[in-house]
């Protein structure tokens, strides 16, 4: 289990760096709107998860009526992931936040989302056994 422990420690390290970057991008310029990026990326895997639970895997012969809700969840997840990048860009374009704050919050958001996704992949691997 040493490898698993190492993965967990490094993932939490990356998560902490991501949060540090996002909070820094807010606190350095006294403008706390980039914190929304964290909320977006925490919400992003949720539609996939909820719609995956709602779908009925036995419906496969019915040509996709059970898969439609899974597709809707994937659509929402794609929407939210791009929202995390687009939100700081919109704020920076209107000079509500500075460009360095935009860069820091985007990089931090990507790190946070990457951590969440890798955690999900590890858990899925455990379920297969």
């Amino acid at each position: 289990m040493a490898a698993g422990l190492k993965t967990i420690i490094s993932l939490s390290f990356v998560l902490a760096i991501g949060f540090l970057l996002v909070i820094l991008s807010c606190a350095l310029f006294k403008q706390y709107l980039p914190l929304l990026v964290v909320a977006t990326y925490v919400l992003a895997p949720l539609p996939n998860w909820i719609c995956g639970r709602c779908s009925n895997p036995d419906d496969f012969g019915d040509s996709g009526s059970g898969n439609a809700i899974v597709d809707f969840g994937k659509f929402l997840t794609g929407f939210l992931v791009v929202m995390g990048i687009a939100l700081p860009a919109v704020l920076a374009h209107s000079e509500i936040i500075r460009v360095p704050a935009m860069l820091m919050s985007i990089i931090g958001g990507v790190l946070i989302y990457g951590t969440i996704i890798s955690f999900g992949m590890f858990f899925q691997e455990e379920q297969e056994f």
Binding site: K74, G78, L80, V81, V82, M83, A86, L87, E95
Partner: peptide, 29 residues
């Protein structure tokens, strides 16, 4: 599924393009 994700991403891009214009129009710039 990659296609469905891409469709969501494109729709998000379109929504935020117009939102960007709206925010820009009410900013000091």
């Amino acid at each position: 599924s990659a296609g469905v994700y891409a469709a969501g991403a494109l729709f998000s891009l379109s929504f935020f393009t117009l939102l960007d214009a709206a925010v820009f129009s009410h900013s000091a710039l």
